[in-house]
Design a protein around this nucleic acid. Structure first.
Lengths: 230, 230
DNA sequence: GAGTGTGAAGGCCTTCACAGCT
DNA sequence: AGCTGTGAAGGCCTTCACACTC
């Protein structure tokens, strides 16, 4: 697979976690029909993605889970582990560090930065906080290629520029603005405020319609035996 | 504006925060050219969105910021404030509560739920944690229409079903799976793991090109958790 | 019959391009 | 000249449909 679109990468990520789960349950083969539902697409889309991965299935016999996992890993996983820095140790930044640091061996948050001197030397989950001025040298010395931005909107662009100038090629942006970066830099936006506003909007729009006829459709879920939530 | 697509709502949310910032800086009018960049679209898209809002601008004089804000609020803001519940008081759930609770007056996280009895009675930012069994009655009694799911993937679907059966119409899903819900229920997925994987993937794709010019020092200490240079 | 592989069609957005206004 | 309003065109994905395989 030479080049994959953003949406394809998203689906591969979802496929993988699903496949890992199936494998953990003892399965060895899988059909496109099983994969499509939890990823939210049609079987045709699943087959297209698998085709693009270079894997082949057997009609009526499905795909080998281990083949799929190997092919997906080939695409998604870096040859060596990647390193990231986080900029902005406010509430959100600390939460992310606490929650995610050390959670994936293939992505290590190597250092944190902030403009607030009160936060220098702060250590969250083994991750040190430094002054923003030190960012370029740290990035270059450790060949870090990912920056996580958790600063307020007003400062996001200047931090992004700083990161890009230092040589970063990927940004995970939690600030509610679209960053301007050089063409070779990829930006993934995670905008929780917008997500909340979207849910709030769509939650109240169709409500009236469904209020009319309430309980007609029940969801046909495969894992219906698992009545024990959480 | 009768109906708006997901992408339109996203942009409206971004426009608004930008407009609020501009207004705070003393501006009263704005051009499409100013709005397009931080939202990541073209001026034509901005004008289309504004047209859809029902606002008009004046050539060479731009749009009135207060008109735009009023029109956007008309679309995005609920007549009365909306209430949400959060299910799953693990690390992520607590972080979200800590970070977002009380942050927006128009969306109140009213209660939290978990299956783990050790968490019953837990209070995070004034938000009480209850047993999952109480979820339906709380939702119905308080007419809550939004559910935030922060449980592991394995339990996400059953929680979603529970929420939908209780009458929820919007779900903010942090679990890495696409939920099956009745047609009238809207689901917004926030998948941090996938986001990280996307950044990691795209960060190293164009890397080779830029690798050319400073491929001198090779620090290949992969799983190094060594100290940070200062 | 049940599933895979894939060309072709369809849909949804975004952008282009240009008329109209001041 | 500069910017808005908008029909038309173009692009990107997704889905359809069906031949093919076991």
């Amino acid at each position: 697979m030479d080049i994959a679109s953003q949406k394809t990468i998203e689906r591969l990520s979802l496929y993988r976690r699903l496949l890992l789960r199936l494998r953990g349950e003892g399965e060895t083969v899988v059909f496109s029909r099983q994969l499509c539902v939890p990823v939210g697409v049609t079987p045709a889309q699943v087959r297209r993605d698998i085709m693009q991965l270079g894997c082949s299935g057997v009609p009526h016999a499905g795909y080998q889970i281990k083949d799929l996992l190997a092919a997906i890993a080939e695409v998604l996983d870096a040859p060596q582990s990647q390193r990231a820095v986080l900029v902005g140790l406010g509430h959100l930044g600390r939460s992310l560090l606490t929650h995610f640091s050390g959670r994936w061996r293939w992505l290590h948050i190597h250092a944190a930065f902030d403009v607030n001197p009160a936060r220098y030397g702060l250590v969250v989950r083994g991750c040190n906080c430094y002054a923003l001025e030190q960012l370029p040298s740290v990035i270059q010395e450790w060949r870090i290629d990912i920056g996580v931005i958790t600063v307020p909107m007003e400062q996001a662009q200047s931090v992004a520029t700083l990161l890009c100038d230092a040589g970063i090629t990927g940004v995970l942006n939690f600030a509610p603005t679209r960053l301007q970066v050089p063409e070779h830099v990829y930006v993934e936006n995670v905008d929780l405020t917008t997500s909340f506003e979207k849910v709030a909007y769509f939650a109240r729009r169709p409500a009236r319609i469904s209020d009319m006829k309430e309980a007609d459709q029940d969801i046909s879920s495969d894992n219906s035996e698992a009545d024990i939530p959480v």
